[in-house]
Design a protein around this nucleic acid. Sequence first.
RNA 1: GGAGAGAUGGCUGAGUGGUCGAAAGCGCUCCCCUGCUAAGGGAGUAUACGUUGAUAGCGUAUCGAGGGUUCGAAUCCCUCUCUCUCCGCCA
Length: 428
Amino acid sequence: MLDPKLIRGDLTDLAGQLARRQFVLDVDHLSSLEASRKSAQVAMETLQAERNRVSKAVGQAKARGEDPAEILETVTELGHQLDAEKQRFDEAARDLQELLLGLPNVPDEHVPDGQSEEDNVEIRRWGTPRQFDGEAADHVTLGEATGLMNFDVAATMAQSRFVALRGELAQLQRALTQMMLDIHVSEHGYEEVYVPFLVNEEALKGTGQLPKFGEDLFRVALDRALYLIPTAEVPVTNLMRDKILSLDELPVKMVCHTPCFRSEAGSYGRDTRGMIRQHQFEKVELVQLVPPEQSQEAHESLTSHAEAILQKLELPYRVVNLCAGDLGASSSKTYDLEVWLPGQSQYREISSCSNFKDFQSRRLQARYRLEQGAKPELLHTLNGSGLAVGRTLVALLENFQDAQGQVTVPDVLRPYLGGKETLMARSK
RNA sequence: GGAGAGAUGGCUGAGUGGUCGAAAGCGCUCCCCUGCUAAGGGAGUAUACGUUGAUAGCGUAUCGAGGGUUCGAAUCCCUCUCUCUCCGCCA
């Protein structure tokens, strides 16, 4: 959520910044709502003060043994006026809140202009895509040939966009997860956490998936709605809900492996083949909470932590600065890491590293104090995939395949696979 | 799943309709006293919102959450959430 103070003053600047992401701010509507909130609140609080004062007089009169009938009459009349003003205020406050919750974050000044992913700006590349003699096989061909990757059986027991892995591929996924966690914990200084995979509505509001973006969530029908997490970002960031941290507890750096569940509504026909876009996938997520003046630097370092995994795996990738039009609603600035996929001959997103500034922490009330007695300030929140495990597995198969469909294991991963150097080896 | 008890400030805990944002203790901060240490004395110590030039005043709200009764609710009623104890079940 944006700072409500932002909408008190001149809205043209805010409207201009939001327009960069194709969001049209109804300035007149907003300022008239704000004006009625203000007048209703002043009127209501004045009446409340009056009522509190007179009501006390009732008690005092009774204590003196006097008959408070006369005072009671005036205070009853006050009560009626108050009800009317309270209703006016509740309405205005509710409408305003609803509108406010629907506003996206303001893009950072370093976010390039643009409308779609076409306008994203490449910042750097690492590694060189390998040249294949013929056409490179994609991960589906490679995986299904060995029977270790099966989409049909998954569709039979669930529906499309699920996969079943077995043998070396199931192990490979676990090995990747393990390796990523180990590196982030031991080399990058993150604390590993374990969290619920089902969360309530409040948690999703805290990180901004609700109220506006609920269509991508799986909801579990119970007496009280719970949702399967679309990303570990939701439960992990919510660990800091309503906290006031001291300086020596900062920065908070957490890493977490969870499955992620997305309904992928609105993506019919896109990436229907293979493991790129699934309803269920594994992800290792990095989350940081830092003082505001450190968030820009933290964004760079968090991104580099995700990049380190790709580098250790020797996977070519590029870093892209998302343009204003392609930015997620809660994010102020986002770097996407795109890994090279020979099966598609293109770079595909494998990590998304965002600085949310105080947009999430305002909803979550995640704060810190510079020193004891100082006023609590909102923290900045950041997160990024480090990495999406399913897509990493895809990248590995496609980049390290040979002509026989065998896959060479990168050195860093071998200890996690019992020293194995080759997967899906053709015997005989 | 059954039965019962509870939820109050950073913590412990009093408060069962009026002057209670809330006793007391602990913790913490500052000051005083004190050869050192220990002890002692004093002051302060929630958050949000509104108003404002103001982190000054003043006002409003908040005693798990939401609703209700009442002139007035931490206190009475309803619903929900959570915690604890006992029994059952269970990886």
